[in-house]
Structures are given as C-alpha cells and as structure tokens.
Design a protein around this nucleic acid. Structure first.
Lengths: 356, 356
DNA sequence: CATGGGTGCTAAATCGTATTAGCAATGCGC
DNA sequence: GCGCATTGCTAATACGATTTAGCACCCATG
C-alpha cells in the first residue's frame, strides 16, 4: 500500500504545534501573526523532513483557487505550429507554478460548452480560448465564471475579452519590404489571396490583414501588384495549381505566397517550367513552417510567432486574473484590449534582385 | 458579482430533503438505499432546474479521485505528430469524462520531477509518460502514487509499468514487402540506418526494430541489402547528403528511408542527378508526416499511428486504474505488458517495379 | 403491550487546508 | 493588586461533497 500523503496535520504534530500555526508559518505569515523564531524553525524543519506538499485539491476547495488554467482550442493537431502555441503557454504557466488543462472543441459548439463546464467544475482560475488559425470566433455564452483570453482569435461580437494576435499587418509590410529592398518594382504576384482586399478565403483574418500591409508598403513606394489568386485552402496542391495557371499567362518576377505550404506548391510549379528561385523569381511567404527551411532554396518567410503567442496569452490572462472582476454594469464594460505579437522576418535564400 | 455556484445543499433545500438524500439520489443509489420515488423525482427535478453540477474539487477531496489524468511528455512541439498523440489521448479521455493535464519536461529530470509533483499535488488519477520519438526512458523515481503508462517509450530498467508502442518490427516488414511485391530483388539501399543491426542513431528503438523487420522479410525472400547509411539525426539535409554520397558510387534501384524527412532529402539528391522516382528508383519510408503527401510523387510510407497511440495509452491507463494496486511484494511484480499498435502502410506513388 | 424488523430518511463525521475569533500568559502603568 | 495591552499561540469553522451510523415510524408478532 502506498504510504499516505503527508498532511499539514502531520507536520504540525511532529513540530509539536497546532495545524493553524503550521499553516501560518508555511504561508509565510509569521511576521504579521507574531510566531516565534523557534516555532517557525521547528515547523519548517518538520515540513522539510516529511517532504510536505500541500494538497492543492484541498486548497482549491478552501480558497477557490486551483493554480490551474484551461486551454481550449478548436484543434491541437492540425499543424506543428499549434503545438508551439501550447508549448509557449505551457512554459509561461510553469514559470508561474500553474498547470494547464487542454481541451479540443473540434469547432463544435456543444463540445465547447461541455469542455468549459468540465473545466469550471474543476475550478480553473482562468481560460484561454484559442483558434489554430487566426479567425473570428463566437464567444461562448457562459464564459462567465473565470477570467478568459482569446488567443489567435477575435470576437465576432464586441466583447470585453482581451485577445492576443499576431501582427499580420506588419507582417504584410515586412513581406512587401523584402521585395522592395531587393529591387523588385514589377511583376509582383500574390498567391493565396488578393489582389483586391476582399479576395480572401472565407473567415481568415490573416489574409485580410496581410493584404493591408502589403498594399500599404507597395502603394507608398508607387509599386503596383501585378496580380493575385485566391483559393479556398492554403495547401500545397492549390499553390501548385494557382501558380501553374499564373505561369500560363504571365512571367512573374516575385511571388508573395500566403503561407509556406502554398509556397511549397509554387516552387513545384516554377520548377516544372524551369524557372529558378530566386534567380528568375523571388518568393516570400508567411508562417515559417518547418518545411520552409527544408525547401531548396530555403524559403524567406515572415514567421507566425506561435510560441510567443502562447506565452503572451498566459501573461494577459494573469493580468486579467489580477484585476477585480468587472462589476455588473461597471464602466469597465469597454471592449477588451487587442495585443499584437510581432511576426519576425526569417531571411533565407528565396529572394534576390530581379534579373536585368 | 458572478452568481455563486449551485451546491448540493441548494439542491437539497429546494427539494426539501437533506443533502445526504440529494447525494444518494444523484449518485443513483436510490435502489439500494430505499429512497421513495417521490423524493427521487423532487431531487432530480431540483437539480435539473438549478443546473446543478458537482464541484469536482470537492469530490476530489472527499473521494481522492479527480477524473483527471496527467500527460507528461518530453516535448509537445517538435513534430506535428506529437500533436496527434495528444489529440488521441484527449479524445479517449473526453469519452470517459476525464480531463488531461499537459506537461513538458524538455528531457530534464528535475523538471520532470517537479511536473509529476505538481500533478500529484492535484491528485491526478493516473499518469501517461510519453516520449515524442520512440526510445527507452528512465522511469522516474516516485512514480508511485498513481497508476502510470509509458507511451512511445520502453523502460530502461525492467519495470512493472505497461507501455504502448508502435509495432516497428511489423512496419519494417511492411516496407520490405512493398518493395518485394513490386519486384525489387537488388539494389535496395537503406538511408538512415543499417546495414548492420547496430548501425543506428543513438537511443532510437525505431531504427533497431525497423531493421529487424526489414532483414527478416528480405532475408526470407533471399534478397540482400545492397547497403546502408547511418547518420545522427533523421533530418532532410542528412538524407540529402547521405543519398548524394551513395549516388557517387552506386546506382540504387530502391531506397528504404527511415523517415519521411530523410526521404524528402533523398528526393532532392535523386532529382539533382536526374533520377526519377519511381521509374528509376523506388522510395519507401516511415512516419507518414504531412509532407509525405505533398512531395511529388507522393511518398509511400508506413505511418506512425500517433493518434491511435494516444488513445491506446488512455485505454491501458484506465485498465491499470481499474486493477488493484500491486501490494508490496505481491506476485504481480512482473514486468509490465507491452502493447503494440499497428503501423498502417500508406501506398502512394513512390514505388514501382524496377526498370528492365 | 413490549419486542422486533423493515422502511425511509437524516445527523454528523470526514477529506486537508485557510482563516476568524479568541485564549492564556506576561509585562506595564498606576 | 487591578486593569489593559501585547505576545504567541490554538480551537473551531468553513469549503462541498460522500458515507457511516442511526433515528423515527409503522406494522406484525407473541
């Protein structure tokens, strides 16, 4: 039989004091409650010797705080990047001595409701509601009982929940800048969205915002976009098909692909017609998926900072937990803050000055 | 102020009974404890109307069971596949009404110890100890307090813990069979391990077992292995380099790559010298990483069943939790069972009969 | 009419901790 | 020698459930 857990009462007994005293000492309140040095030492020593660890379940019952937060996402597994987001959250949580519950909703409202319930039943101190690709989400009703943060998502309806998002507009600017700085002024094509601001796959925030950034920088330099191709899903085969179609009519000098999988497909199409990257065509992309550095030449891309997003979500959640809960009808009912996380440019080998 | 949670006492009061009775009814023990139909109805109705949900923290304190399990892995984020393992575990857990704590050890013993502590402090009912690539691990001391399962890992020292692993030997057989069935009898090269049984990257169980399976099937058919190349890490650039080196001296007819990233590199090397897959060289691989179906031609590979591994780990853990804890010195101290999960072959486009 | 045996419910203890309220002992002023 | 503050600790309660022990009532029995 496994030895029973050491309890506070055990510590108190071996130290020869009441459990009240033991509790006081172990929560470091000896000063304000005038416990003698001697007793303090005895308790600390007993706790150390018995390897005492507070039972968090009990503490949770007593205080209502469990040092636990819930991470609810639509999908964990769709991309390697999702894992990074969890990893970031995990590490930030660990630094604070907090554990993470993980749950997947598969995008189903009913599952989501049940999952949140299960977490509240376990008295989580807060909730991170994450989307695996940046999009707007319906904030579930009954997200009341604990502070919450939206991660990689914006609320469909105005909400007082804060959100943490990649800075996609700036990412768009960065991608455009890379091409400008290499000397590109014409033949710049978009693969995955554009050229118009409404030519985007359904529901993606990323496409819209990246387009804004791209247009802003290119526009300011007096450079036009030669063309753009939208398709429903940013996968390699679509990228391949779209680039192929493009090559039938145009001779692009530079491609802005809306993610690395699309760029992977674009590489294949360029290869098929004998065009070399970057000598003939420069390619810049977004996400920094692992394949970006497996491709030849290695792909220059603006990274989605998934790890950092996860960390920030925990930071913001803690700030949220610290603040007094918004009173009914209080003036704090303004919409939640939007935190933007920088998307770093990874310059590799796929961009070069246009050939003369 | 958020409305206080509904407690069992609230239900009891509105039903006009004691909380003992309410508890009895809600745990379905009305029969054995002779509660009247009438009272039963009143309680159920009250619970329904008040939307009562038991506080699991409280239940946890009272009964010691929290309907929570801990998933401790070395890394979550290294691969897309790791996410699938978590996903499988998550879904299996959800079906049983159990939540998952997630934690990462980064391979550090101290972190692992602290993580397990934190989980035990929260009274988890069981622990899944996972490795992100199949290997032997040192079972941490103090894995005592709750049932545990090894996932994708074998214990270094004999241990009574059960483990769940992909059936790598059979996977090796499958890979060899694919080539044999296509008619390959010679020029079969191994990229990533071999040709000898000890030519494996350090610590990988997968390489050893895959080699066994490959040798068994090829040997039984009287077919020899033309050669093998080991390197420390199964990444694309190593695959590229190894295949390049191979091509300088040999003209292979078929490649067995030890994972898809290696195969990705091998494709590049073959492409460089103008060899076509599968017309000139057949390629078969392991893992079924997403790129396997992005590559052209699509890669035939034996899939690592990560999702299924995750599910099975939960199944096995539950079986473990069901059984009485092994008494000190009981005869149940034999080594834990090893559960093998089938690795399904994904036949795609990279294998063809050898050219005449 | 005391005894005994169901029947249908409840009081109270328990899990391990935090916290409020208060108690005994001491010293001090007057 | 009495009141009063201060010091240093403890008893008791609460958190929200489960579970053990048992109580009150009714009916039948001899």
């Amino acid at each position: 039989m496994s030895p029973r857990r050491v309890t506070l009462a055990d510590v108190a007994k071996t130290a020869g004091v009441s459990s009240t005293t033991a509790s006081l000492v172990l929560s470091g309140r000896t000063k304000e409650l005038r416990i003698s040095r001697d007793v303090e030492q005895r308790v600390l020593e007993a706790a150390e010797r018995l390897q005492y660890r507070p039972n968090i379940v009990s503490v949770g019952l007593r205080t209502g705080t469990t040092r636990t937060i819930g991470f609810v996402s639509d999908t964990v597994a769709t991309s390697r990047l999702a894992g990074d987001m969890i990893k970031g959250a995990l590490e930030a949580a660990r630094e604070r001595g907090v554990m993470l519950f993980i749950g997947e909703t598969e995008g189903e409202t009913e599952l989501e409701r049940r999952l949140l319930q299960a977490m509240y039943d376990r008295q989580v101190d807060g909730i991170i509601l994450a989307a695996m690709y940046t999009r707007t989400i319906k904030v579930p009703r009954g997200l009341r009982p604990a502070p919450a943060v939206l991660l990689n998502a914006l609320p469909e309806q105005p909400s007082r929940l804060p959100s943490v998002l990649p800075d996609e507009v700036e990412a768009g600017r960065a991608a455009a800048r890379v091409l400008l700085e290499a000397g590109h002024r014409e033949g710049i094509h978009l693969i995955g969205a554009g050229p118009g601001p409404h030519d985007v796959p359904g529901g993606t925030v990323a496409a819209v915002e990246r387009l804004i950034g791209i247009n802003e920088v290119l526009g300011a330099a007096g450079v036009g976009i030669a063309g753009g191709r939208v398709f429903p899903d940013w996968q390699p085969d679509y990228g391949l098909a779209a680039t192929r179609a493009l090559l039938e009519t145009d001779r692009p000098r530079a491609l802005i692909c809306f993610n690395d999988r699309v760029a992977f497909g674009a590489y294949q199409a360029l290869d098929d017609v004998g065009l070399k990257v970057p000598a003939d065509v420069s390619v810049v992309s977004f996400d920094d998926h692992p394949i970006a550095s497996w491709m030849r030449p290695k792909l220059t891309t603006v990274a989605l900072p998934h790890y950092e997003l996860g960390r920030r979500a925990v930071d913001v959640l803690f700030a949220e937990m610290g603040r007094p809960s918004p009173e009914e009808g209080g003036r704090d009912g303004r919409t939640g803050r939007v935190h933007r996380v920088e998307m770093p440019l990874r310059e590799r080998e796929s961009v070069a000055p246009p050939a003369a």
